[in-house]
Amino acid sequence: MSDILRKEIKLSASPLAFLFIAFGLMFFVPGYPILCGVFFVTLGLFHSFQAAREANDIVFSALLPVAKSSVVKGKYLFVCFIEGCALLLMAVVTALRMTALKDAPVYRTNVMMNANLFALGAALFLFGLFNLIFVGGFFKTAYKLGKPFVTYIIAAFLMIIVFEALHHIPGLEAVNAFGTEHLGLQLALLAGGAVLFALMTWLSYRTACKNFEKIDL
């Protein structure tokens, strides 16, 4: 593990960031917008940023013998680590719902979004949105958290509504596939989510490095 990620986990991280990974289990909940689980995971991350700011973590990190860009890298590695853990949990739940639980009446009669590969792709997209809007927004000042988080909340809930609505649009029912139905489409949507996550995170990281270099601490 890199020293800067270790520092993030050992010193900067709020316990809530780890605890809220459990919201990945919301992928089990029927009759509820399961992508809210993604939001709660990012809420834990937000709390971590808030706690780190109160501990003057950015100055502490900048005083370590690392380049300023490594301070940014540490934050992104930590965020991606938590998101990765949550996604893994969601993937396990999704795998169960796609196999052993695929015919469970409680899920078959569920009017909300199904937990399938598309849902995982959507979760990745929302994590990417968090990295782009919140983490990138934070590094414009390395201090202000409120505005980027509120902007992210608005964008995330709008996207959750869109994702929840998609399978109700005639012709798009396939996005709500059960089991291995429409597997090609499901895999393509998951891959699309992964690509968008990678693009948004990379773009955000690059911009954050440039912005942070110019910030006076």
């Binding site: 520092k7 050992k10 010193l11 003057n56």
Partner: peptide, 15 residues
């Protein structure tokens, strides 16, 4: 003026 509630031992262990 950073990490006021962390033990010195833990801070040094990271640094």
């Amino acid at each position: 003026n950073w990490y006021p509630r962390k033990k010195l031992r833990d801070l040094v262990d990271t640094i």
